[in-house]
């Protein structure tokens, strides 16, 4: 028996639309966060104290992280362990392993004030330590905390400067 046929292109469009609908519905929260991360750029340049009320740090993309790094507006903190930091880290970043920040008040230098823009990163999208560190920093009273989810891998792949002993 032959099934009722629709125009092939309409059928393709229908399948794509169905996938899009399910995909967007399934990942609604992720997409909303990503969208806010994108539009957050203006907010980073003109800090909004409203973030103090939020417990979750917002994501920043590679381009924003690079801008804020280069202009000296932000302090980058590396959430990985000390060994990984010594091997390679984003140039100018501070080491603040999640395990250390978890135990006591995050030991950041005096020049990092509650209004300093802090960008946490770790080993890329599959690494959640930067997000956890970001939450701890917000709890500790830092008001402008962001997470660079691409982390060291994306930064390095983009050819941006890193420091450390890795050859």
């Amino acid at each position: 028996m032959r099934m009722r046929s629709i125009h092939p292109l309409s059928e393709i469009a229908l399948v794509v639309l169905l996938a899009a609908l399910i995909g967007v519905a399934w990942n609604k929260t992720l997409l909303t966060d990503a969208w806010r991360g994108e539009t957050r750029h203006a907010a980073v340049v003109a800090p909004q104290p409203a973030q103090a009320a939020e417990a979750v740090p917002m994501p920043v993309g590679l381009a924003q992280a690079k801008d804020l790094h280069d202009s000296g507006q932000a302090v980058l903190v590396d959430a990985r362990n000390a060994d990984s930091f010594v091997k390679e880290h984003i140039s100018g970043a501070l080491s603040l392993p999640l395990a250390v920040a978890d135990r006591k008040k995050p030991p950041l230098p005096k020049n990092v004030t509650p209004d300093t823009i802090i960008i946490a990163y770790c080993n890329g999208f599959s690494c959640h330590d930067s997000m956890e560190l970001g939450k701890i920093l917000i709890k500790a009273g830092y008001r402008q905390v962001f997470v660079f989810e691409g982390g060291l891998p994306e930064w390095r792949d983009a050819g941006y400067p890193t420091a450390g002993g890795a050859s």
Partner: peptide, 16 residues
């Protein structure tokens, strides 16, 4: 892709 569209692709492609 631009930043946000990486997430859109990641949301939709697997279901397709």
């Amino acid at each position: 892709l631009p930043y946000f569209w990486n997430y859109v692709a990641a949301a939709v492609l697997p279901f397709l």
